[in-house]
């Protein structure tokens, strides 16, 4: 299929772009150091005395808050800054193929980073008898969480040619996606607002939907939530690019 070939060509180029620059290596090292630090030191992995990766996955929404926008901030802003967007979009490629290709490449890269955390899963299996189904669900949830943040970064990077602005706006939006369902915040909100309203707001939060995965529950509604966030953000990216081209 022609459109798939185009998408794959773009995926290949983007992935190659990560690895020919130091970005990929710097990111992987920082990601692995931070996950290790939070899991073992801050998360009290050993003191918990339980064979699970709760202390590993709990931190992902916060870690991704800064790391995923760092991966996604350049996707479109770099194209705009270099002027290559004009090349790319005058090729026989639809805007859709370009958006999906770029998103998939970065998502694959994040998946790779996640794969490199396998020593944590090995460790917990070596020390005890964890429920590997729960761990698997945790990884799936984490991947979709990263994908949602990434789609948001993709959207903000299409808004500007400045990567710093793209990064900051993306962090802010992702922070909202966390805080809307973060327990301390929802507790505070219930004091002022109708609990039902708080519940509705929390339903927009990645926290609410990531929780199930951490407990090992693969709920179709949670998956639908993440896929909708990704779909919506990528659709908005398309609208932003169209408006930018229309002037």
């Amino acid at each position: 299929m022609n459109s798939w070939a185009n998408i794959m060509a773009i995926v290949k180029r983007e992935l190659g772009g990560y690895f020919t620059s130091p970005i990929a290596y710097v990111f992987l090292v920082i990601f692995l150091l931070l996950t290790g630090f939070f899991t073992f030191t801050v998360g009290n992995f050993f003191e918990r005395g339980e064979a699970s990766l709760v202390s590993f996955f709990t931190w992902h929404p916060w870690l991704y808050l800064f790391l995923v926008p760092a991966v996604g901030m350049r996707l479109w802003s770099e194209e705009r800054r270099l002027g290559t967007m004009e090349l790319l979009l005058t090729m026989p490629v639809t805007t859709w193929q370009a958006i999906v290709g770029k998103f998939l490449a970065s998502w694959l890269f994040l998946a790779l980073a996640l794969v490199f955390t396998f020593p944590v899963a090995v460790t917990v299996n070596w020390l005890g008898n964890p429920d590997n189904g729960v761990i698997f669900a945790g990884y799936v949830g984490s991947l979709f969480l990263a994908g949602s943040y990434l789609a948001v970064s993709c959207m903000t990077s299409a808004m500007t040619r400045n990567q710093v602005i793209s990064f900051i706006v993306s962090v802010l939006i992702c922070l909202f996606l966390i805080l809307a369902g973060y327990t301390p915040v929802t507790d505070l909100l219930t004091r002022f607002a109708n609990p039902r309203v708080v519940e509705v707001v929390a339903a927009f939060s990645v926290m609410t939907h990531f929780e199930g995965f951490q407990r090992g529950v693969l709920d179709i509604r949670d998956l639908v939530f993440f896929v909708s966030v990704i779909g919506f953000a990528l659709f908005t990216t398309g609208v932003i690019i169209r408006n930018h081209r229309a002037g």
């Binding site: 620059s21 270099l82 004009e86 005058t90």
Partner: peptide
Amino acid sequence: RLLGYLPENAPGYADM
């Protein structure tokens, strides 16, 4: 498909 285009300032992907 029929077109070749050289934009102003000849842009290119810097890291490729």
